[in-house]
Nucleic acid binder design. Structure first.
Lengths: 98, 98
DNA sequence: CTACTAGTTCGATGGCTATCGAATCAAGAG
DNA sequence: CTCTTGATTCGATAGCCATCGAACTAGTAG
């Protein structure tokens, strides 16, 4: 197991996570999920942030791909929630600053 | 003092910080500054990361503008170091994960 | 079956940004 | 003064990305 290769891989993950959080709407989604600590659907987020549902779907995918959120599907509705393990690993203490 | 306006301002700062960190070369600069906990010059960084000095200067400026680093000038040489207060405020615990 | 609801995907577009070399500047060295 | 060194700025370029509407899928209600 090469330590330097792990370093590179971890860095790629860090960069991906920072990119995901470097967008106002995604950051607002994270805050709502954290503060109201509940799940949200695409429709709810779209209504609250005043952006189209296709854009919301795009942001949901971006957050999920880097492991910051996970999705629970009930019928045709998908509920988004925070993946706390990822925050603990890469950004410990960050959520509490929101 | 309007709480919501503070929220918006803090979010803009957060997004700016995440953008600054969402770039592989800048992240490497941060790690070197942290792990070897010393100051570095543009020339040193350019030699170590194999990028042109104009690009290094560009990254230094990006990091400084969002308050992640500060600069100490000695003659015509500028030394970069971490602004730990900013990390503590917006990303407590992050540096220790590097 | 039809209509509605929740999401995804696609194509296009406008804007941002990382990168470089060249030009410039300031400060010492000789 | 001239040359070198460390750094900034500028202009250009290429690539990425947030946004939207439209088209599509799938599940549910009437």
């Amino acid at each position: 197991m090469d330590i330097e290769l792990n370093q590179v891989a971890a860095d790629q993950q860090r960069v991906a996570i920072f990119k995901a959080l470097a967008e106002p709407n995604r950051l607002r989604i994270i805050r709502v999920l954290y503060h109201e600590h509940r799940e949200m659907t695409c429709s709810e987020v779209g209504a609250q942030l005043q952006i189209s549902k296709s854009t919301v779907s795009y942001h949901f995918k971006a957050l999920r791909l880097v492991g910051l959120t996970n999705t629970r599907q009930v019928a045709q509705t998908k509920y988004l929630s925070l993946q706390l393990a990822t925050f603990d690993r890469y950004l410990p203490g960050f959520l509490a600053t929101l």
